[in-house]
Structure formats: structure tokens, C-alpha cells
Design a protein around this nucleic acid. Structure first.
Ligand SMILES: [Mn+2]
Ligand SMILES: [Mn+2]
Ligand SMILES: [Zn+2]
Ligand SMILES: [Zn+2]
Lengths: 152, 152
DNA sequence: TCGATTTTGATAATCGTTTTCAATATTGAA
DNA sequence: TTCAATATTGAAAACGATTATCAAAATCGA
């Protein structure tokens, strides 16, 4: 992520909390900083483990609360990939969908405009006003397919 | 559902339990009969309410256990439409995906072979071995769109 | 019928997530 | 800077869907 984009996201976050009349705190700053730091699909637990390395006192609930704020401001997306725990990723500029490896849990992102167009066509046919969608393809990634083939 | 298909499903169910060395019970028969009775996307709670009208003594856990048996035998599919509670539908002969109304919770089913083909193409491109997928389109059905338009 | 085995319903346990609450931190005004 | 109003925190309890436990009851082949 570029420095400019990084700053822009911080600005969006700060505008969101100020507009809700909230206060800024050290804990939230650590969590947001860490969340913006890299693009992965993290569980709350995983993010909590990371922020704890910076401030070991930060509570589990605060991570939940901060992720809710980030989701509200459109900076985070909550995902449910058929696991018990939800995952959060930080929002990209373009919509994308996911391939999910059932063996190693690797997540591959993809965009496909043709599919999106066809989805809209399906909706139009049913006079359905589309808001958002979820498309997840489950199977085995290249590495895990190879392992399975060799009976590992 | 035709009478023949109905009987065929019962046969599959009975074969499944006999092959697992299980016994047949009145409670399960009531639950399976009710589940096969119509094609809806039911929560456990909703199915429990229905079977209770036939036998008020049937327990919640037995409904869960029977739905697990039906899922194992391929006669039921568990769905998670972004609600807390899972829904179960009885298996159709063809794969299909769903439009989900965010207002009235109506569920519309559709099939689109073009999309399925494109999904396979995406997987091939990533050398990904596809097992199954989830595609859910969320928005507003015709009726609810109209209501929203009129500010209701 | 009998006895081994499965099933049942009630209830407790589990697990991710949300709420509660008293102590603490932030903030704008004086 | 001091103050008071208000938001925030972390720990723990509550929540809600689902699963596990268990003793009593039902099934079923011999
Ligand atoms: Mn992603
Ligand atoms: Mn369906
Ligand atoms: Zn893999
Ligand atoms: Zn609707």
C-alpha cells in the first residue's frame, strides 16, 4: 500500500470517529495501524495476537469494537469462509471474490467482470435489486492438489 | 415432488441408516416426512415447530440429529444465508444458487450455466481444483423494491 | 422374551461474539 | 491547568446456535 493511500485511510477512519462523537485512543490506534499494515484475511484472534506484541494489555473486546468501527467506515470487510470464526480484510479499491483451499486454508483473490455482469443479468430477470453478493469457490490449491495426487 | 421421487428419497434415507447400523424410530420418521413434505429453506427451529404439531414430545436435539443424517445421505443441504441460524433445504436434482431478499427474507433459486462455466475457468487459471462453491446475491425482491420506492 | 445396542429428551457444555460495568482516559470549557 | 461530562477500557458475564452428555426408554435380532 502506498503512503498516500495509507494516509487517506487514516483520514477516513478519523473522520468516522469524529463524526460519531467518539474519542481517539492509544489502543485503537495500535489496532488500526496493525490492521492497515498488511493485506491478509485475519481472524479477531490473529489480529489480537499481533497487537498484543505491541501492547500486551489490549483486550479482546477492544479488537472486536475497533473492527466494528472499521467496518462501519467501509475500511474493513467481514468475511465468513465456512469456518466458525469470521475473518476481516482491509478494503481494496476493487471488489473481488475468493478461492479457498480446503486443505491449507490459503485464500486466493480474483476479479471476473463477466461473472459480475451475468449476476446482474440474473437479477434483472427476476426484477431483483442487487446490493451485494458473495461468491466463494472451495477446493484445493495447486500445492495441495499435488500432495493429494501423491497420496500425502 | 412426484410420488416416485418421494419413495426414492425414502429409500435412500433408509439405506443410509441401515448401512450405518442404526435403528428406525417414530420420531425420525415424522421429521423426515415433514422435511420431504415441501421445498423451503427451513431453520431447525422452524422444522421443530412443524414436527411438534404432529408429535409435541419430539425434542430439539432430535431434529438436529436427523438433519445431520439427511445431510450425510445427500438428501439435505445446509445453507448459511448470513443469518445466525443455518437453514436446510431438501436436495434438488440440479445444483442451484440463491437470490436473498434482505427485507422479507424471501429466497429465489436460479441456475446459470454460463456463470458455472466461468467459475471453472477462473479455477483452471489458478490451477485450483474446484469442489463446491457458494454464490449468494443479496438485495431486494420485486415487492420490497416497490415498497422502498414508495417510502414504506 | 431377552439382552445388546441405539435413541431419546432434557440439560449442560461449547464457542464465537456481544454486553455489562466499574475504573480509567479523553476532551473541551472555564 | 483544572474540571466535569462523556467515551473507553479490560475483565468477566451473558448470549445464542449448536453439540455433547447421560440415564431412561425403545428397537430388534436371536
Ligand atoms: Mn479478500
Ligand atoms: Mn435452494
Ligand atoms: Zn492449499
Ligand atoms: Zn423481499
Amino acid at each position: 500500500m502506498t503512503q498516500d493511500l495509507f494516509k487517506e485511510k487514516w483520514a477516513i477512519y478519523e473522520q468516522h470517529i469524529s463524526q460519531k462523537g467518539l474519542k481517539s485512543t492509544r489502543q485503537r490506534d495500535v489496532i488500526v495501524e496493525e490492521f492497515f499494515g498488511e493485506h491478509e484475511h485475519l481472524t479477531v484472534e490473529e489480529l489480537w495476537q499481533r497487537v498484543r506484541k505491541i501492547d500486551s494489555k489490549i483486550g479482546y473486546a477492544t479488537v472486536y469494537r475497533t473492527l466494528k468501527l472499521l467496518s462501519e467506515s467501509g475500511l474493513a470487510h467481514k468475511r465468513q469462509f465456512g469456518e466458525a470464526q469470521a475473518r476481516f480484510e482491509h478494503a481494496t479499491d476493487h471488489h473481488h471474490d475468493h478461492l479457498i483451499c480446503m486443505s491449507c486454508h490459503q485464500i486466493i483473490e480474483f476479479e471476473n467482470d463477466e461473472i459480475e455482469t451475468l449476476q446482474e443479468r440474473v437479477c434483472k430477470k427476476h426484477k431483483f435489486q442487487l446490493v451485494h453478493h458473495k461468491m466463494e469457490l472451495y477446493g484445493y490449491c495447486e500445492k495441495c492438489s499435488a500432495k493429494k495426487g501423491r497420496g500425502i
